[in-house]
Amino acid sequence: MENKKKNNGVSNDHLGKDVSKKERKIKNKESKEVKESNPFPKDIILSIKNASYRYSDAEEDDYALKNVSFDFESGKLYAIRGRSGTGKTTLLSLISGLEKCSEGEIIFDGKSLKEMNLDKYRNSDIGIVFQSYNLLPFMTAVENIILSMDANGLKIKNKKEKAIELMKKVGLKASYANRKVLRLSGGEQQRVAIARSLSYNPKMIIADEPTGNLDKQTETEILEIFKKLAHEENKCVIIVTHSQNVCDTVDKIYNLKKVQEK
């Protein structure tokens, strides 16, 4: 079974806890069929193969992350769960191309990240959402979204209209468009961050504790947005979290364990 893969010296455990077991079975069946004919099945958008990461100043066998192998499919909402220090954020930075694997590789849409222009990858193929939103505080909500479009080199006439449309999509009023992001609440800022990550229509959204700073109600609303993006827009959404609420919402959960706990 896919979610019970075990590697030598594994530091990770694929629980693959599907919300709908029936759905999971169907998917697994489909997946198996694809795998038999194609080493990189069409619906798998991201594949992590034995990825390990060691900080440059760490000792030889001091890994922050070791031999992690996960697959992610389009149209699904994933959670990567683990206690502090298990390498969740490290894994996220590897997936988002902010760091490079020390060993192993990550394959996005059939291409190894090692062969890709990671700047282009970040401003075209994936959208990143952070716990602390990482918006530019001196810009308005709409400017933050347009900045991301500009970084992508998106050539559309009415960027502002498109940005406002995205804001509406994530549940923000159009009247917030010209408001400096610092004057928005945490939930609203996170919605702007999500809107920004959607500005160039990426295939995958990666979110690092996106609801970590939010109350339950807002968390549920944000998760609903992610769910819609996965299920209605066929995006692969990966959420790094240790929130039970998030884990209850996602389609699949990958658990990370500390390297020492293996």
Binding site: L98, S124, L136
Partner: peptide
């Protein structure tokens, strides 16, 4: 940091 994260080279 933010600009680099959103893919500006």
């Amino acid at each position: 940091g933010v600009l680099r994260t959103i893919g500006i080279s």
